[in-house]
Design a binder for these strands. Sequence first.
DNA 1: GGTTAAACCGACCCTCCTGGTAGGATTTAG
DNA 2: CTAAATCCTACCAGGAGGGTCGGTTTAACC
Lengths: 171, 171
Amino acid sequence: MIFSSKAEYGVRLMIELGRQSPLHPTSLKAIADAEGLPLAYLEQVVARLRKAGLVMSARGAHGGYWLSRPADQIAMDEVVQALEGSIAPMECFVHDHTERVLCSHEPDGGRGCATKLLWTRVQGGIIRSLQTTTLAELVKFSDRHEPASPAVTAVTAVTAASTAPEPTPAT
Amino acid sequence: MIFSSKAEYGVRLMIELGRQSPLHPTSLKAIADAEGLPLAYLEQVVARLRKAGLVMSARGAHGGYWLSRPADQIAMDEVVQALEGSIAPMECFVHDHTERVLCSHEPDGGRGCATKLLWTRVQGGIIRSLQTTTLAELVKFSDRHEPASPAVTAVTAVTAASTAPEPTPAT
DNA sequence: GGTTAAACCGACCCTCCTGGTAGGATTTAG
DNA sequence: CTAAATCCTACCAGGAGGGTCGGTTTAACC
């Protein structure tokens, strides 16, 4: 498989956040329930998104997560990269400095192996397709196909934007 | 990682066959030695290529393998597909009929999940980049950069990846 | 202030796949 | 007949993927 379940879960999580109002945080529990995903595992996933600056969080009661930017300004290559660590078609692509066994005949000389040409093109194809897809597109798509989403509405409505942690919707 | 070492080894094997005259078979041993790969493992790899009809073989002494078609008529998506089994960005793409846990919320209803839209695009990007690369290209590329090949200057070696029609985004 | 809901953190575990080996059986040129 | 090769099946070790658990901190509400 090309991408791990972290990518799947993380993208779903981002979509779910994109469906919510950015004015109040959404708890992981709500997302886990809505998507049928294990909460404890989602914590790990969302941690990557947070470290990448894609989501922000508020701790404590009525805390949760929200997108740090409007969904139409989030390209999916950023998201997937954050979740997967790197978008590398082959082992030797991960770090330029740590050439591994697979590229055994590469470091010994300046020439690049022919396979690298191939993997470079593939990587380009992947990244381009991710770059040209925004989170907003996916959110819109999921809206069109969602029969109904009663999922997350209950928990959050209380304090609304009173002390909401400033999602900074500038622009 | 996106592709396994089977893909790397198999592509190298195909390139090596492409460099040889198709008139006489090339033994796996020769390829294993040339590329520094374990022979026993290459057997498994080449078996996939043979079953896919990409290479043909002759048993017995002086046996070996050769391309079943000219290298310029072999697109790399066929090769990679044969080696990897399928080019699927996510679990649920492998077989349409065996939807797995990851797509838990998909089978229940006609709607497709939004992530599937994303993975479909990614898959398209990958396959397109593979389809537009022929084995002959890689053979030619490896010829230009092979120090062992006579009468070719090594001057252009490093930047030659720029001959790829695909831009190579930084990671 | 206490309770409760949440993020946060790190260690742990288990299964499956990958990469690779071992040992043979079969074919065929010389 | 023998050597060189393909072919085939089983096996194995390690690591990563997917997931759990327990606990600590933070903050809102009563």
